[in-house]
Amino acid sequence: MCFIVSGADTGQLFDSLSDRRNFKLRAYFQRFTLKARKKVTHIVMNMNASYGSFVKDVFPCAKISIDRFHVIQQL
């Protein structure tokens, strides 16, 4: 499994990480300044509960949405 980072408006692929464990994701995103991370306004993710706390810590201003596929799957 991997972790894909893309732009919401354009769908442009920014990066694809080979490891999606929280400590690896945290280390990757903390390379960016807090000022830059505060500019992230929205995160779309799957329903992995562990991502929620990680996202709130690393992107303090972002709102979290669950991706459509997982919402429909749960319905």
Rank of each mutant, 00 (worst) to 15 (best):
M1H: 14
M1P: 10
C2I: 04
F3S: 07
F3Q: 00
I4N: 07
S6P: 01
S6G: 04
S6R: 08
G7K: 12
D9S: 06
D9K: 11
T10S: 11
T10Y: 07
L13T: 07
D15H: 09
S16A: 14
S16F: 09
L17A: 08
L17H: 06
S18Q: 08
D19R: 06
D19N: 12
R20C: 11
N22G: 01
F23G: 01
K24S: 13
K24V: 12
A27W: 02
A27M: 06
F29R: 01
F29C: 04
Q30G: 01
Q30V: 01
Q30Y: 07
R31Q: 06
R31P: 00
R31A: 05
F32I: 00
T33C: 00
T33A: 08
L34A: 01
L34C: 00
K35S: 03
A36E: 10
A36S: 13
K39Q: 09
T41A: 11
T41K: 10
T41H: 09
H42V: 12
H42R: 08
H42D: 06
I43G: 02
I43H: 13
V44R: 03
V44L: 14
M45K: 14
N46Q: 04
N46K: 10
N46I: 04
M47E: 02
M47C: 05
S50Y: 04
S50E: 07
S50W: 01
S50L: 04
Y51M: 11
S53T: 14
V55G: 03
V55S: 05
V55W: 03
K56T: 09
K56H: 14
K56A: 08
K56P: 09
D57M: 12
V58L: 03
P60K: 01
P60F: 02
C61S: 10
C61V: 05
S65D: 12
I66L: 06
D67I: 07
R68K: 09
R68F: 15
R68L: 14
R68E: 04
F69V: 07
F69I: 02
H70I: 06
V71P: 02
Q73C: 13
Q74E: 05
Q74Y: 15
L75I: 12
L75K: 10
